[in-house]
């Protein structure tokens, strides 16, 4: 029984994460502290953007995780549909609020950054708009989980929603790109960061991204454990009623 699916057993999952979780948490703390301090205090100001550029250390990692969290939910939903492992469905459920918060952080830091740079808190730039739409997708997904009482029904329906939603999210991304190039070809606000970031900024950014990835993993593991225990509690209550 040496397959990866072994960890899809709730008991095994709890046992494994008992050992893994503290390490992941510590690592994520270290990476975040190192990355953020390095980024904020030991990098020079950008010659065009001044010190505002430093918000990049929050903005880029959170934006990355916002998308990756949805990807992870998609994979977990597929695993649930195909193999019916309960932990997988619960992991998808656990990841959704984390992903949503990442989206909010990306949007907020974007607004804070955008204000001095572009002179506006919000612009209907394709990237910003796509993130707003992503936020709506998260909202719908979480609301559907919350609305359905039966756990397995909820897992099935949210998985279907996640699948269909992913297709439509990609479609929306292209539609939004198309839409803003459309008639009003105003000032293009999109910043292609990765390309014009110099090494001095790039290395602390990598550390921050690693920190965010680890933070995400730690939060999802923690929340999945909570979901498993909540589920077990409901199951025990049900058993008691059967008496």
């Amino acid at each position: 029984m040496n397959s990866i699916w072994e960890y899809a057993n709730p008991k095994k999952f709890i046992q494994t994460t008992d050992k893994v979780l503290p390490w992941v948490s510590i690592l994520s703390c270290v990476a975040l502290v190192v990355g953020l301090i390095w980024g904020f205090f030991f990098t020079p100001d950008d010659y065009r953007q001044g010190s505002t550029v430093k918000i990049i250390y929050l903005h880029v990692p959170s934006a990355l995780m916002a998308i990756n969290a949805w990807m992870m939910m998609l994979v977990a939903s597929l695993i649930w549909i195909v193999r019916r492992h309960h932990v997988s469905a619960l992991a998808a459920r656990a990841a959704a609020p984390v992903g949503m918060i990442m989206t909010v952080i990306a949007l907020l830091t974007g607004a804070i950054w955008g204000q001095p740079m572009w002179g506006t808190w919000w612009a209907w730039d394709p990237r910003l708009t796509s993130f707003l739409i992503l936020f709506l997708f998260y909202l719908g997904y979480i609301a559907l989980w919350a609305a359905i009482e039966n756990d397995d029904t909820a897992a099935d329906l949210t998985s279907v929603l996640c699948l269909v939603g992913s297709v439509f999210a990609v479609l929306s991304r292209y539609a939004v790109n198309f839409w803003n190039q459309g008639l009003h070809q105003g000032a293009s606000l999109s910043l292609d960061k990765e390309e014009n970031v110099a090494d001095v900024f790039y290395h602390p950014l990598l550390v921050c991204i690693a920190g965010f990835v680890l933070l995400f993993i730690a939060l999802v593991l923690l929340r999945t454990r909570t979901e498993i225990r909540a589920r077990r509690m409901r199951a025990l209550l049900a058993r008691e009623r059967m008496g």
Partner: peptide, 20 residues
């Protein structure tokens, strides 16, 4: 209400291309 919340984001591409 939930129905609107689920369906409206899915309407985005259709709306964009249709209105465009």
């Amino acid at each position: 209400l939930l129905l609107s919340l689920l369906v409206l984001p899915l309407y985005v591409p259709t709306l964009i291309f249709g209105a465009e």
